[in-house]
Simulated assay, not measured.
Amino acid sequence: MKKIHFLQLIRVPNSENMMKRLWGSFAILALIVAVASGCSGDPPPENAGKTAAELNVTTDKADLKARLEEMAESGVKGSGMAGMGESIERLRASDPALADELTTLLAQLEAANSESQVKSTARQMADKL
């Protein structure tokens, strides 16, 4: 039969464990304060005074241009084509003429068979943005 020591029967708080718990609690509290202090809710200065629609159009243009420039560099359509028509349609509200031009070029880009055609058409579209 195994002998059991008296201290094994009762739980005596270990000062090392208490220190670990204290530092862990402090770390969690510091993290909460750091996260909460970054939530001011004020828009960045460059977005001040702009409506949500204006911000979305700007984001759509920047996203569309980035995807087109990538295609113009690589010559590969790939996943960059996904949602491009929808992005152009969202631009229609702010600039219908640009959206018409981009829609025409998008049809050419979709029909492009060679790498050079993809590069050329994607570059034309990116330059318009």
Rank of each mutant, 00 (worst) to 15 (best):
N14S: 10
M84G: 04
S74P: 01
E115L: 01
M1S: 15
E86I: 06
S120F: 03
A36L: 11
I10P: 07
G49M: 09
V76P: 05
K20M: 03
D60A: 06
A62D: 10
D60I: 09
Q117D: 14
G85R: 02
K77N: 04
K77R: 06
D95L: 04
A93D: 12
A72S: 13
L29H: 04
E110I: 12
S37P: 05
K3N: 12
S79W: 02
D127H: 05
A93Y: 08
A99E: 14
G24T: 05
A126H: 01
M1R: 10
D42S: 13
M81A: 01
E115S: 09
I28F: 09
N14D: 15
S94G: 09
V12K: 08
R92W: 03
L29P: 05
L9S: 08
M125G: 07
L31T: 12
L129P: 06
M71S: 03
G24Y: 00
L91H: 08
R11H: 03
S40G: 14
V118I: 06
L68S: 05
V118K: 02
E73D: 10
E101K: 14
C39T: 11
E16N: 04
Q124I: 01
I28T: 14
A62F: 02
V57S: 14
E110M: 10
M18A: 11
A62P: 04
L68D: 06
I88H: 02
D60K: 03
A48N: 12
A112M: 08
A66N: 10
N17P: 07
F26I: 12
A97Y: 11
D42G: 11
R92D: 12
V118M: 01
M19Q: 13
V76C: 00
L105D: 15
M125R: 03
E46M: 12
E89N: 13
A27D: 07
I10A: 08
Q117I: 02
Q108F: 05
K2W: 09
Q117V: 02
L7Y: 11
V57M: 06
K65E: 07
K50F: 13
S25W: 06
A82W: 00
L102S: 13
S40T: 15
A122N: 03
A30R: 06
P44L: 15
L22G: 04
Q8K: 06
M84K: 04
K119R: 05
I10E: 09
R67T: 02
E73P: 01
N113V: 07
F26T: 10
G41L: 07
A99N: 13
S79E: 08
A93W: 07
D60P: 03
M18N: 07
S15Y: 04
L55C: 09
D42F: 10
A52P: 13
R11Y: 01
V33M: 09
A48W: 14
E101Q: 15
S116Y: 02
Q117F: 00
S114G: 11
V12A: 10
I88A: 00
S37V: 13
K65S: 04
N56C: 08
I28R: 05
G78Y: 02
Q8P: 03
L68I: 04
A93P: 05
T103D: 15
M125S: 04
L55P: 12
A53M: 14
A122Y: 00
Q108P: 10
